[in-house]
């Protein structure tokens, strides 16, 4: 009952916002268009972008700029929800927004590692959002020229500790730093969930994130075995130290298995193998998104007055932007609409 009251407003708002998101039919129409300005003109007519983009000149915009604008729209919508949310709901949103922080940190680190001399990371899409929701000083961080400075600039922030730990390892790579941030974030979610949430919310969070972590672990295992031929010990070192439905023995067996058939048989016997019948070890990559979306939608439908609604909307919004970005790319390079739709559906 309490949930019904506290979520009734935000749930209605989210439903309204969700209805504006670009649908698959619209994407199909977009794919029929012949060039990028037309796509922008099309988007300018949709309810999601009509208001914010009304002053833009579609002919002068580059595809990269459009992608930034799309990214900005994620943060814009997040802020709208945040403003509407009460204290309890903001706890979740605060936790969730760290994902964006990690995203921008990774972008900056990529820049530091790969092409130091090219343009710095464009932080304009993030600026507005970070002023409101984050303690990170983006200007200072983007001004750094190497990892040492970057880590030093983070001093006092929660991400300092995991990153500085990695620095102690010999020959630390971009992947290790990114992994450290992710692991830190995931374990934080898993560890604080019981303190922050209760009742239905706790249940939804546990399911959503638990399945996510399990799936990520499965992905890690399959990927590292299939593509990188890593030793079991190296694989273990990368796993997210959280188990939801995957048992320790199952993970052990999966990691130690030697042949492809053996792996597949082992996977069949796990919770996920039983739950999703057409899920196979080889299409796990593609299925990860489908499954996550499926879980979130189901939860949001079952419990429309819970935190699952927030999570589900934020996921869909990001997903919409991702798909639009692919669509734009396909239009730009003249990919056949049918083939393009395949790419989009896979994500």
């Amino acid at each position: 009952m309490g949930n019904l009251l506290s979520y009734s407003g935000i749930s209605a708002k989210i439903r309204a916002m969700q209805s504006k998101l670009t649908t698959e039919e619209q994407l199909l129409e977009i794919l029929q268009l012949s060039d990028v300005p037309q796509v922008i003109a099309y988007l300018k007519r949709t309810p999601e972008y009509a208001e914010v983009w009304k002053d833009l000149d579609e002919n002068s915009l580059h595809r990269g700029q459009i992608e930034k604008l799309l990214k900005t729209s994620i943060f814009h919508n997040f802020s709208r929800i945040y403003q509407f949310a009460n204290k309890e709901q903001r706890k979740f949103l605060d936790l969730y927004s760290k994902r964006y922080e990690i995203r921008v940190l990774k972008e900056i680190m990529t820049d530091l590692f790969d092409h130091r001399d090219t343009d710095p990371v464009d932080i304009t899409p993030y600026c507005e959002f970070f002023r409101k929701h984050s303690k990170l000083d983006l200007e200072q961080l983007t001004a750094c020229t190497n990892m040492e400075e970057f880590i030093a600039a983070l001093k006092g922030h929660e991400f300092y500790q995991p990153l500085s730990q990695i620095r102690n390892h010999e020959s630390a790579l971009l992947f290790d730093y990114g992994m450290a941030l992710d692991l830190y974030y995931f374990s934080q979610i898993w560890n604080v969930r019981k303190k922050l949430f209760s009742g239905n919310d706790l249940k939804e969070i546990t399911t959503a994130y638990g399945e996510k972590f399990d799936m990520l672990n499965l992905q890690f295992i399959f990927r590292s075995k299939k593509f990188f031929h890593m030793t079991p010990a190296d694989i273990y070192a990368l796993l997210i130290p959280m188990n939801y439905k995957l048992k320790k023995e199952e993970i052990n067996a999966l990691v130690e298995s030697t042949t492809h058939e053996q792996t597949r048989a082992l996977f069949r016997r796990t919770y996920y193998g039983k739950k999703y019948e057409h899920l196979e070890a080889h299409n796990l990559e593609e299925f990860y998104n489908v499954m996550l979306r499926d879980t979130l939608e189901k939860e949001a439908r079952r419990d429309p007055y819970s935190v699952a609604v927030l999570y589900s909307y934020l996921y869909h919004k990001e997903h919409e932007v991702y798909r639009l970005t692919i669509a734009l790319e396909c239009v730009r390079y003249g990919v056949d609409p049918q083939e393009a739709l395949q790419y989009i559906r896979n994500n």
């Binding site: 273990y236 070192a237 130290p241």
Partner: peptide, 28 residues
């Protein structure tokens, strides 16, 4: 590191012919 040691203990230690003597610990 503690987080790696936990994984080590959980997945590997039992299957390996080794003895690890924990002497002390700090935060990390």
């Amino acid at each position: 590191e503690k987080q790696y040691f936990k994984k080590f203990e959980k997945y590997i230690y039992d299957a390996l012919d080794t003895i690890f003597l924990k002497c002390s610990e700090d935060e990390q």
